[in-house]
Amino acid sequence: MADTLPIEQFTSMYRRHYPAVLAYAASQVGRQSAEEVVSDTFMVAWRRLDDIPIPPLPWLLGVTRNHVRQLRRTADRHRTAVMRDGTQAWWERAVADVADVVADRATVIRAAVTLSDHDREVLTLIAWHGLDATKAAKVLGCSAPTFMVRLHRARRRLEKAMDTESRQQSDCPIRTLPTALCR
């Protein structure tokens, strides 16, 4: 039987960080699979409650990331299709969210989806998930200097992709998402 204190400690952490972990997972595997990944993440957190560093969010996102990778490795055909559809739907929604607001924002989203998963992850950990470089490095399991190098390269590729996007939009404003996103 669990003691009261760990329950309260875990519950507090869970409720505080669940939204951030879910948002990260949704951006990685789509909305449908995200909750399952998040559930797995917090199950690990419950078992290893005594090992979780402070602040816990980078650790939680790191565990989530591992689950996402594991899921991608082991998913069967059906699950892979579901994840692919979920991820694509999520990013399409992301594009729709910004497409009617500011053109630059729509462009940067479209540019982001042309990047590799790796670059997109590095960028969004900072831009969307509220982490600084040190915490983002912990999520990825690398040093902060290494992360800064990866971030710099990803940023350059994003800039380049935005230029390409801007040119293509002027030629053909309505396009579907690139399939590379769905890997």
Partner: peptide, 18 residues
């Protein structure tokens, strides 16, 4: 571009929406 990307953070990442 990171700032632009941050400003383009999708609404679907907002707590209540997700």
């Amino acid at each position: 571009v990171l700032r632009t990307l941050a400003e383009a953070r999708p609404r679907c990442l907002a707590d209540l929406d997700l």
